[in-house]
Simulated assay, not measured.
Amino acid sequence: MGTNSPTEPTARRTAVERLSAGEGVVRSLRAEIADGTFPVGNRLPSEAKLADRYAVSRPVIREALRSLATLGLTETKTGSGTFVIASAPETGLHLGDYSSRDLHEARPHIEVPAAELAATRRTEADLVRLHALLQSMSAEPSPRGWVELDGELHIAIARASGNRVFESVIAELRGALTAQSELLNLAASRQPDSDVEHAEIVRAIEAGDSARARDAMAVHLAQVAVAVTDLARNPGRP
């Protein structure tokens, strides 16, 4: 892979006006990688230059770059920078030790029965924890902070099931789940839908309705899978 710097069109400062700054940067960079503004094999401008180009902070740029790497579009090399390695997303996402396919095949067999059991086994302490997490997520201004809370919520649901195997597995998957969630929020605007789906799962658990809790979790996981598939299959998505 070449280490040449691209011809950097940094004179054109692009202000991002989207639902969030991070989402706007991801969508703009995806479009510019797809159209060859940043060609495969070339190094992206530095974080500082990208922050100036898109009129955002450097933490926003770092969030966007993590999402591009998850899509398989870029690779960051310590001391060398971030390089474009593909012009369109691969069919699967890179989520640490796991792929998106790994998650989509496994999660329904773990989290759906966990939610079902949680509806009949949850304690008052479990409910307090679940509602506190929902409240924190609704008030969390940081995209990164929200996905960390998202991971905690899924672990808390598994813990409420009373099955330590379910809890341990979700805890093990947390890093991959966080990476996937961050990408979907920035590139596919999933956060508002996830908030609604999470609230329904918790309401069903609180009501002690095991069938409703099972179905609510199944719907949530199915919608996540659809969003990931659409993101990977549609390279033209802005």
Rank of each mutant, 00 (worst) to 15 (best):
N4E: 15
P6W: 00
E8R: 08
P9D: 06
T10Q: 10
T10M: 11
A11K: 10
R13E: 12
R13H: 06
R13W: 00
T14I: 13
R18F: 02
A21G: 11
A21K: 11
E23L: 06
G24R: 07
V25H: 07
L29D: 09
A31T: 13
I33C: 06
I33V: 13
D35E: 15
G36Y: 04
F38E: 09
V40D: 05
V40Q: 15
G41R: 09
N42E: 12
L44Y: 00
K49R: 13
L50P: 03
A51D: 05
D52F: 00
D52K: 07
A55T: 12
R58T: 14
R58P: 06
I61R: 08
E63H: 04
L65I: 14
L65C: 05
S67D: 15
S67N: 13
L68R: 04
T70H: 02
G72H: 03
L73R: 01
E75C: 14
E75M: 14
T76H: 10
K77W: 03
S80H: 09
G81P: 11
F83R: 12
A86S: 12
A86D: 10
S87I: 13
P89R: 14
P89V: 12
E90N: 11
E90P: 04
G92E: 14
H94E: 11
G96I: 13
D97A: 12
S100R: 09
R101G: 06
D102L: 13
L103S: 05
E105D: 08
R107K: 14
H109W: 00
I110T: 04
E111S: 04
V112C: 05
V112P: 02
E116N: 06
A118W: 08
A118M: 15
R121E: 07
T123P: 04
T123I: 04
T123L: 07
E124N: 12
E124M: 12
A125F: 00
D126K: 08
L127Q: 10
L127A: 07
V128L: 15
L130D: 03
L130I: 03
H131T: 05
A132M: 13
A132Y: 00
L134M: 02
Q135R: 12
S136Y: 00
S136C: 05
M137P: 06
A139C: 06
A139D: 13
E140W: 01
P141S: 05
P143V: 03
R144V: 13
W146V: 08
W146T: 07
G151P: 14
E152N: 08
A156E: 12
I157A: 04
R159I: 11
S161F: 07
S161E: 15
N163E: 12
R164H: 00
R164N: 02
E172C: 05
E172L: 09
L173Q: 05
R174P: 02
G175T: 12
T178S: 08
A179R: 10
A179C: 02
Q180W: 02
E182A: 04
E182Y: 01
L184S: 01
A187L: 04
A187Y: 01
A187H: 01
S189A: 11
P192C: 07
D193N: 09
D193A: 14
E197H: 03
H198T: 06
I201D: 02
A204Y: 01
A204F: 05
I205Q: 03
S210R: 05
D215I: 03
D215N: 08
M217D: 03
L221E: 07
A222I: 01
V224P: 01
L231Y: 00
R233E: 15
N234Q: 11
P235K: 06
G236K: 11
P238Q: 09
